[in-house]
Design a protein around this nucleic acid. Structure first.
Lengths: 206, 206
DNA sequence: TTGGAATTCAAACAATGGTTTGAAAAAAGG
DNA sequence: CCTTTTTTCAAACCATTGTTTGAATTCCAA
């Protein structure tokens, strides 16, 4: 409940989130975090019981913010047509392509986890991923009425992956030989385009 | 040209490839490599001028093998119908889902690079990625005659990304709450399914 | 104001990382 | 066979890492 301790705690969390997003867990040192946060080195052990504990806390916060954001839009999505809902979903997915806001950082942290998930992430996922997956599954089900569970599941994963190749390789794609410029207009066009392909693909399930 | 030195060089390369694929660059220590390769610790510095040099060499070899493999199939792909060619392309992409062969390891090494590309990888990509991209672009062009360059480019990237979500999250998807079992039959079914969606999507470009 | 708890701090610790060293062993060439 | 070069080896080196320590400081309630 004490005020000053909360301040440094918050400073550490903020700095750590940025660094973990940028360089991953292994690439981020305690000393780099405390330098950025302008706190003493021992503070991390005092407040989080080590680097692991800090990472767990950052991951938790990122995950919570992420699902909250998506679930907040769930209600309004239900009111849309299935096509509109799909475009909205894709746009929200592609949004991190621009800017370095909080949402983008969270995506980046999760990206690090995809190659070799830490136990912390695994636990988090098995606890809280269900409602998140449910959103995509609901959306898919509107395009594929009568499909079996496995198909719905795979299609949901497939849908979530539609944008990930652009998200993940953002930096690489911006350079030669591709040279993809990712401004606001481009993201708009991109979600439209991908949306069309997805609608067309799911529209005629063989 | 000396024989014995080539042997240890090869031993190191082989062990390093496996470990880099499994744990990434940062997660792999020199000591772990030499232990697996059964060589002296100083051998890496002697033969590769350090960890960086070894990694560069592994990356180069992986990249070369990869493009060779893809280009080898390019000819036979041209003879197929566009649908058949697409299924073949997808199947080759999804292949690393099973087994721990060389091809799968190479894909895994590249996966590590997508989060934060090393300068080595960047250079390699800008030098040799063009023919690789060209394959996908050619395939796409058969489905989208008359489309402009940008659309073709984006669609090619999109196509290559169709499978990546399954590849990259393989371990995570295998566990609850998704629990995707990835045996031979599943990979077959998966490429078929994705193929259908892609064909449908590209079939009606708005 | 004061006394005890919470927090900060600089310094040191222990472990692990990549790299270097200099001598010993092996191989190659004459 | 002897010399020269190449290759291996055990050990040490040095930088960096996460963590611990114990004293100093700040905070807050009594």
């Amino acid at each position: 409940m004490t005020r000053p301790s909360e301040v440094t705690r918050e400073r550490i969390m903020k700095a750590a989130e940025r660094l973990f997003a940028e360089r991953g867990y292994d690439g981020t040192s305690i000393r780099a975090i405390v330098a950025k946060a302008r706190v003493n080195q021992a503070a991390i052990n005092y407040h989080f019981e080590g680097k692991d504990g800090l990472y767990r806390e950052v991951l938790r916060a990122a995950f919570r913010a992420m699902t909250e954001d998506q679930l907040a839009h769930a209600a309004e999505t239900k009111a849309m047509s299935r096509e509109e809902a799909l475009y909205a979903f894709l746009r929200r997915q592609l949004h991190p392509l621009m800017g370095r806001d909080e949402y983008s950082r969270h995506m980046r942290i999760f990206n690090w986890e995809t190659v070799r998930p830490t136990p912390v992430f695994r636990a988090l996922l098995s606890e809280e991923a269900a409602p998140f997956m449910g959103l995509a599954a609901d959306l898919i089900a509107r395009f594929m009425p009568g499909a079996d569970r496995r198909t719905i599941t795979v299609a949901s994963i497939w849908l979530m992956g539609q944008c990930s190749v652009f998200l993940r390789n953002r930096e690489t794609l911006a350079q030669p030989p591709v040279g993809l410029v990712l401004d606001d207009a481009m993201v708009d066009w991109l979600s439209q385009q991908i949306g069309n392909w997805v609608v067309g693909g799911l529209g005629r399930p063989v």
